[in-house]
Computed example of a mutant assay.
Amino acid sequence: MKRLVLIGLAALISVNMVGCGNDTIAKINDVKISKDEYNKIASFLYATGYVQEDKNKGINNNILSFIIDNEVAYQDAQRENIKVEDKDVNEKYEDLKETLKSNSAYKAKLDEVGVNDDFLKSQVKKDLIVSKYKENFMKNIKINDNEIKTYYDNHKDEFTKEEVRASQILISTLDDNNNVVNQEQKEKLKDKAEDILEKLKNNEDFAILAKEYSDDKNSGKDGGDLGYFSKEDKNIDFTNPVFKLEKDQLSDIIETEYGYHIVKLTDNKSVTKTLEESKEDIKNKILNQKYTQHIDSLYKNGKITIT
């Protein structure tokens, strides 16, 4: 599953393997992967949170697999003469720049390893070619209802998930431009959150305090109610501690990129999607499996060297 997830990241960015001036860590047919190029793509994936950072500072096998997957696909796309329009490249590039601009923290991390605008734009073009290659492959695959039902019957656990219902009070640490406030302001806001938590521990009404203090105005007007959600629906820094709460339990202060959260769990349940509800999801899973098998065949027919 890890490998499938990494292949899915091709929609974000892929790595360009040309002009290797540093030590080579792998060779894919005639294309070398340098340590410098590896560091750039690894920093991107770490900074955006799509891969958990490896504290060992060595080569992360998941990232290396991702790089190789995309390179063998790109090479085959070149053999098939797949091309993309400049306007699509420019549009995707501008979207990526806006994403980076909105998060100065990981933009700084990318600057440290030389991930500049020129590098990103060249990767966007390559990424779109790989995405088009994958799309072309999948549209020629037919999945019948029997395959879908068989998959559902054999993988029912994949379609059952835990959901919780919770209420929150958010004390935001972002200013009007969505930038993080300075450390002195953050400390004052944390003190404010701790004061509210103390009120709740003294049995003051959660809904009333949410309406008065929460910076999440959407849930605040409803007494902080967030409705039902799964772990995948929200930020992992938020859901990890929330899903450890018992029903009616109050959390400690939870810090995320948005600020300080105080959460009360109000309900939990297991939800299993029906076959009919799962059909499109299953079709995509099977298509991704077939695409992975196709990539494996490119591995076997190519010459991959890890140094």
Rank of each mutant, 00 (worst) to 15 (best):
D175K: 14
K32G: 00
Y133L: 02
L6I: 03
T160D: 09
K273A: 10
I236G: 02
I59S: 04
N284C: 05
K217F: 09
Y50M: 07
N56G: 06
I262H: 04
G21F: 11
A47N: 13
E80Y: 03
E71T: 13
A105I: 14
V89C: 12
N202M: 07
N140Q: 12
N154A: 15
K57C: 10
V51P: 03
K134P: 00
T24E: 14
N240H: 03
Y38W: 05
E98Q: 10
A105R: 11
D23E: 14
K300Q: 08
A207F: 04
L120S: 03
R79A: 09
E204M: 12
K283W: 09
P241N: 07
F238M: 02
V18W: 04
K149R: 15
E204C: 09
K188C: 06
S230K: 09
A105F: 11
T173L: 11
E71N: 14
N240W: 01
Q185M: 12
E212G: 01
L174E: 13
I67A: 06
A47F: 01
G21V: 11
D88C: 05
K125N: 12
T256E: 04
N81M: 10
E277C: 03
T305I: 15
K55P: 05
K27F: 03
L265R: 14
E158N: 10
T292G: 08
D157L: 08
S102T: 06
Y152G: 10
Q123W: 00
S297L: 09
Q183I: 15
K234E: 00
F229L: 13
S34R: 03
V263R: 03
E158I: 07
N140F: 07
N140D: 14
D296M: 03
V5H: 11
K283H: 12
Y258A: 14
A210I: 03
T150E: 15
K87A: 11
V130K: 00
Y38C: 04
C20D: 08
G227T: 08
F159M: 08
V130L: 02
I282N: 11
Y260F: 15
L287D: 12
L128T: 00
L110G: 05
V18T: 10
D296E: 13
D281T: 14
I286D: 10
E232D: 14
V51L: 08
D222A: 07
K231F: 10
T256W: 02
I236L: 02
S131Q: 15
K273N: 05
L209P: 00
A105M: 09
A207K: 15
K121A: 08
Y258V: 01
D76N: 13
E255L: 01
I25C: 03
S65H: 08
S214I: 05
Q75S: 02
I28P: 06
T150L: 11
K192P: 05
S131F: 00
D267C: 05
N235A: 06
K269D: 06
Q123V: 00
L6T: 04
E204Y: 11
F137N: 08
Y291C: 02
I13V: 14
K132I: 03
S167Y: 00
L6M: 08
V130C: 01
D145W: 09
K264Q: 09
L275G: 13
V180W: 02
E53I: 13
E276C: 08
F66L: 09
T48M: 06
N81R: 15
E163I: 05
A166K: 04
E184H: 13
D175C: 13
K32R: 13
K121S: 07
D30L: 07
K121I: 12
K231M: 10
V84Q: 02
I129E: 00
T24K: 14
